[in-house]
């Protein structure tokens, strides 16, 4: 038995010498990056496809989502304001040559929120807080035209398609958050979920300027909303909602640039807002 022996073997023959945390970090970073790229690609693709959803379908979807739009106003004053907004919107929509099957519905809300939003189904919500910051009808028309442009460019449905694709991909990959999809669908009409990209905002600004120019013959006061916004942002307590918006200064500059290129820029007087539009 002399020829048989058990030699002492060195350690680490059968185990890779990598530290478990290094292995973990590499895997998480690599797979995470892949996942982000894949989800991003999916979201862009879904946005492209959502653009082709017929507007009637979008309206039906918006109608089926339940009571997420503001209640119709009940006081006569608010009804008068709503009527005024709708008339102005219809004039703008006429100037913008919207497709015939794309009606725009304005909803007036007496809330003090300084905002206006376009959402699914051609619904636009305007808050009293926004109207109070505007000096003239021209400024209000610019904001409305901007929101109409979002609807015309199908931005709300694109944003919805993207959000839906991302959520679907993440929840099916991770297997968690069964309730999240339903929650998201229920809250889809809310603005924070439908966020538009910077290029979509710029495109909407461009279209809106053209519409305002066509309707009034000049684009005076068009930058008024953004100027008011810039003043508010310089305050320490700026509302977080606006922080997602692209550079306000840049937008003001772009509007002024456009206005400077018009022959009769700023010479024509702005039309004042009717007295009933201002909060008492």
């Amino acid at each position: 038995m002399a020829e048989y022996e058990n030699p002492q073997l060195p350690e680490g023959i059968n185990v890779s010498p990598t530290h478990p945390l290094k292995d973990f970090a590499l895997l998480v970073a690599g797979i995470g990056a892949l996942l982000i790229v894949a989800v991003l690609a999916l979201s862009l693709l879904a946005g492209q496809l959502a653009r082709h959803i017929p507007f009637e379908q979008e309206r039906a979807l918006a109608a089926s989502l339940g009571r997420w739009l503001p209640q119709p106003p009940d006081s006569p004053l608010d009804q008068q304001r709503q009527h005024y907004l709708q008339t102005l919107t219809d004039r703008l929509a006429g100037a913008m040559e919207l497709p015939p099957n794309m009606p725009i519905t304005v909803h007036y809300s007496s809330s003090k929120t300084v905002n206006a939003m376009a959402t699914l189904g051609g619904h636009i919500i305007v808050f009293q807080g926004l109207i109070d910051t505007l000096p003239s009808e021209n400024a209000l028309a610019m904001v409305l035209a901007h929101e109409i442009a979002h609807v015309r460019h199908r931005d709300p449905v694109v944003a919805m398609g993207r959000g839906f694709a991302v959520l679907l991909a993440l929840s099916s990959l991770a297997g968690f958050g069964d309730g999240a999809l339903q929650q998201w669908l229920a809250g889809v009409g809310m603005l924070p979920i439908l966020s538009f990209s910077r290029s979509q905002e710029e495109e909407a600004d461009r279209t809106a300027l053209q519409a305002v120019l066509q309707l009034y013959g000049h684009v005076g006061d068009a930058a008024a909303f953004f100027e008011a916004l810039a003043r508010r942002q310089s305050l320490p307590e700026s509302p977080t909602l606006f922080n997602t918006h692209p550079d306000v200064e840049q937008r003001i500059a772009r509007i002024r640039d456009f206005s400077a290129r018009q022959v009769n820029s700023d010479r024509a007087p702005a039309i004042p807002l009717p007295a009933f539009m201002k909060a008492a």
């Binding site: 059968n14 292995d23 973990f24 797979i31």
Partner: peptide, 25 residues
Amino acid sequence: FFKRFVAGLRSLVGGRVSAYESLLE
């Protein structure tokens, strides 16, 4: 749990599952 998670990630991309190598050793 840690080993299982790392091995699960590893199963997506392939390669040596070092988390399980030491376990079996």
